[in-house]
Structures are given as structure tokens and as C-alpha cells.
Design a protein around this nucleic acid. Sequence first.
DNA 1: GCGACAG
DNA 2: ATCTTGTCGC
Length: 233
Amino acid sequence: MNNDKIIDLLEKFKSEQKALLPKVQLKNNFQKENIRFIAGVDVAYFDMQGKTKGVCCIVVFDLIEKQVIEKVHSHGEIRVPYIPGFLAFREMPLIKDAVKKLTKQVDIYMFDGNGYLHYRHMGIATQASFLLGKPTIGVAKSYLKINGVDFTMPQNKENAHTDIIINNEIYGRVLRTRVNVKPIFISCGNWIDLDTTTEIVMKLIDKSSRLPIPVRFADIETHAIRKKLLIKE
DNA sequence: GCGACAG
DNA sequence: ATCTTGTCGC
């Protein structure tokens, strides 16, 4: 993919993101007590026959029974390069394919990446919400600096957090899910508020990781599937 | 030209 | 994201 083509694509992508923005709602469109099934979505990459391929896994976790109730995956060629701010366009085709395979109910989707914490408030979690028609949450392992604004490190206590505020607007939250571990960067995707987002993320933390269970499991699953695909060929 | 850069 | 072994700690 040459440079001119990428520049054209980015302009097109940017206007798609701007068109979606007015539809974003940072309010819960559900009753908290009804939330039970949380899906984690992640993508892993590999090369095969000189092409960049990807594996997308979705793991659905039951908050009540505390167990995984469904795992689905999709894989295929990745055609869009990674450019900060446009991750959704790179991963969305595979996500769509994996979503089609789901048979169980999902109440909320969690993504490996940002949501409202994004240049145009349109990180992958927010953008994907329109495809899914469900509330979404963004969970990033590192910080994507916006307009040169740094984040404030939260205290070294479980559940300590600081907000990322730019031009008097809250973009997202830096959350210390466990003591002595780097914080994560969470943000609303759509149809959910930041406090509820934080609550749900904390409910899904266990001793095994600083990341919430569905995202962690989806990450592990993508690596497992990728390994199988590489052995076959 | 240099640095920054979710995954 | 990915390339990669051992190793410190709960």
C-alpha cells in the first residue's frame, strides 16, 4: 500500500469517525443489575506467505457463574496498516467475522484499546459499538497521548485512579487495578458512563493479571489459535 | 529533520 | 503488535 493511497484512506477514515461522534452517548442504556455476560475482544498478528494475517478472538465471561461460556474466533489477511488513531479500521473486518459466530447473549463488550480516550473520541471500542449495538468499554495497556497532555500517575493502591482531562473534558481514566503493577487506561466506549466502566472493570480483576478477565482470556486465546494456524501450514 | 506512536 | 530466557516474587 503506497503513501498516497494511505493518505486518501486516512481522510476517508477520519470523516467516518467524525460522522459517528454525534451518536455517542456516555450514559448507561441498561440497568447495572442486569449485566451478566461480558465479552473480551482481541487480535493477534502473524506473517504467512509474505502476508500479514490476524486472529480475532472473542471470549464471553459470565459474571455470575465466574466462567467462560463461549469462545469464537476468526482469521484472515490484514490489509490496513497500523496507524495510531485508526486501529479500528485495521481490526474491524476480523471482529465482524468473529461476532457473526457468537451464539450466546453478550451484555457488554470490552476491547484491547481505547474508546472515548482518542483524538476524535472514536477509539476502537467506541467505533465498534455501532457495529455491535451494545455498550462497549476500552481497556488499553499503554497511554496514547492526546494534544501533548500527559496523565497523572495514580497512587500505588488497588482501585486508585486519576482522570485524563483535556480542555475541561474527561476523556478517560488511569486505573490501578492491582498494587505494585502498572495502571491501565480505561475509557467509555458507548452507552455507558465512566464510573460504571470502572466498576465493571474492577469486578473482572483477579490475581492473574492487571487486565480484566475477558480481555486477558481473549489475549491468551488469540495466541493459542495463532499457534495452531502456524502448525497447520 | 526529529520525536511520538492504542495495537 | 512482534522478536525472546531466565528469573524474581506472591
